[in-house]
């Protein structure tokens, strides 16, 4: 898996994930993921457009980072998950506790509030 952070205006960080988010994939990115979300950004957008598969360990990774952001009062949005990943988010009920947006403008609006 690959991960990179992209600074947007007004303290928003966009994190781009790519690759299969299974045990091996998460191991590759989790340290960097934690570093990025551990910054001072008021809003974090996690772009999942390039993630074709996500297992429960991937959910855990998203959740851990969401908690880290919300603990300091920040906003956390998952952007553009592919259909399979989106259905995993729905089945697991994660979409009930985490914002999932299919539109960039909408996502930016949510984290910039």
């Amino acid at each position: 898996m690959n991960i990179d952070g992209e600074e947007l205006e007004s303290g928003v960080l966009k994190i781009n994930l790519s690759g299969r988010m299974d045990i091996e994939g998460v191991q590759q990115i989790e340290a960097r993921f934690g570093e990025l979300t551990g910054g001072e950004h008021s809003g974090v957008i996690v772009d999942m457009a390039e993630v074709p598969y996500m297992s429960s360990i991937g959910i855990r990774s998203l959740l851990i980072n969401a908690k880290a952001v919300s603990r300091r009062g920040g906003k956390y949005v998952v952007l553009n998950p592919q259909p399979d990943v989106k259905s995993v988010l729905e089945i697991s009920g994660i979409d009930k506790i985490m914002d999932v947006c299919m539109d960039y403008g909408l996502a930016l609006g949510k984290v910039s509030q």
């Binding site: 429960s56 959910i59 959740l63 697991s92 009920g93 994660i94 009930k96 506790i97």
Partner: peptide
Amino acid sequence: HSSGPPIAIM
């Protein structure tokens, strides 16, 4: 029907 997120998250 889904009742919510997995146990132990919230």
